[in-house]
Nucleic acid binder design. Sequence first.
DNA 1: TGGTCGCCAATTTTT
DNA 2: TTGGCGACCA
Length: 684
Amino acid sequence: MFETLVPGRPPDAAAWLDDLNPEQLAAATHPGGPLLILAGAGTGKTTTLCARVAWLVSQGTAPERIMLLTFTRRAAREMLQRTRALVAMPAGHRGVLGGTFHSLAHRFVRMHASALGLAAGFAVLDAGDGADLLDLIREEHGHAQRDRRFPKKSTLQDIYSRTVNAQRTLSEVVAECFPWCEEHVESMAAMFKAYTARKRSLGVVDLDDLLLYWRALAADEVIGPATEDGFDHVMIDEYQDVNGLQADIVSGLRRRSDNVTAVGDDLQAIYGWRSASPQHILEFPDRFPGTTVLKLERNYRSTQPILDTANAVAVQATRSYEKRLRSDREDGPPPALVFCRDESEQADEVCARVLEAREQGMELRQQAVLMRASHDSDLLELELTRRHIPFVKYGGLRYLEAAHVKDLIALFRLLDNPANELSWFRVLQLLEGVGPVTARRTLDALVAGPAAAADPLGAWPQARDHLPAAARPGADSVVEALRAARSATGAGVQAEGLRDALAPLVSSRYPDGAVRLIDLEQLAAAAREASDLGHFTAELALDPPQSSADLAGPPHLDEDYLVLSTIHSAKGLEWAAVHVLALYDGNFPACMSAGTSESIDEERRLLYVAMTRARRRLYLHVPVRYYHRPKGNDDAHGYGKPSRFLTEEVQRTCEVVRRAEVGGYEATGRLPRKITVSPDSLFR
DNA sequence: TGGTCGCCAATTTTT
DNA sequence: TTGGCGACCA
């Protein structure tokens, strides 16, 4: 195998290069130095990047000396798979080193943990854990829950994360993005300092820390160059979505060499709320002098009418690289503009069209429903269930956020580090009659008690006295399970032991306990595959499963199901038919984003991303009357204006396939109150 | 009286 | 699923 890949073999001899168009070929075979590939939606970005890897390997670069950074785990998986299919791996070589920024950061931070003052098996807090820790600190700083005007934990976390990722000062970020919190800047600053100190003392890192630490490693005089020299080429996918911190990491990785390839499309930048900025892709040529800029504009995915509509949305944008997609496919019908009376009619319309398409031979899995916010599909999900149409939903409430799953993970963490206050705080509150106060006292006795220094579990006999009598047996069995798991070997055995101890608590704590136990079973089963429970939980934080089905592996693979997804989760994917939901102003663009022109631009790009996922059919659904509840108002209906992005220009490129009837009480403007019917008065 | 538990309303997008 | 508010228990 290796012989076919020795250096010097002419690139044109490789068959896979023949399939590329001239622009793609130029990008794939760019000899070296900084390269920026501006690849519009559906222009074969992944193909080109994979071909480039293959070409570099054919030129003699060892695969493991190529680093491939992607934005999502899904993209990483696909990219590595396709690369593997393209490049016969030379014997004795490991593959390309690929993954998300966060997962590669984890790898390097683990590698240099001691230099960073971390224990070898440090835990990674996921977003929820970080928020919980902040909440704990908020209490300690005297901002009790009842302090209504103080930002709540998820907001605090947003502010913290945004500040760190943008690498700007707290007061700047708050003034710009969270003006209603300005009066609290000083207390927040104190809390955030306490938060970083606490993470230090607990020996844990959060997702943002991973990037901070990696950047510090890259900047280090000894470790930086050593890391850099390990890689001949660094490639970054979706460069439009990197933030300042990530851009710094890329620069740090390329201080001596400038073999760096960035691929992206500023028209698809949709992560500004996470401090990403299209600024970085626009400034790439400044950061890397001598950059070659190549554009891919030939679209292999969508029909021309769909691109016309998408282009009509894109041209509303203010600043971008000049580019316009041209289709390489045969013509097709124009996108359909579906005006519905309300969201329930929208659900009916989608079901009807999905089924109709399937009648005509389009599998359900070739069709997708995309939305701005995950709850936009609530009614549709009900309707799909009622009609027995199978579907899988991506994005939105994720598996790891389910309370009982966090409970078991907390136990996993305690096994690794019995001094983990956060986990104890969580687990103790599952017990009968134990709330935050009792939990706090008990865990103080555990972690700060005299016997604790050596082993918190040793302090258990004293700590359990703080619990009400009813809670003691349950608590004892959890502690017993932790002791047993300690001496057990194999992540699977340990996980099962802990799950068994947790099961009775979960089924008594939650009314739908039985269903939740199934999830725990799957989590324990997944842990069986891992070599180490600590690694398993860290991986889980970095690569959260989208659903419990996802965790169980891909059993649905041969089944047919409709895909429901937030647009953010749909990035990089494509379907033959795409339905976009709830295109009314206030929802899309979301009213929370209506403040600045930048956030409106981002919402517009989001719509552009949604539209360009479609290969042959695109349906844009506009409910005319929407249902939502401004607080305390029972007159919960309102009339929606179509999304401001559906300008006349855009509408001209579409076909209106349905006009909602406006008549009856809707025409009078007098809306019925919510009507409730209950025969309860008969049952006395 | 401190603390827990039950019932109500509301919730953008994600590594 | 979180958080606020009021009822109930030691």
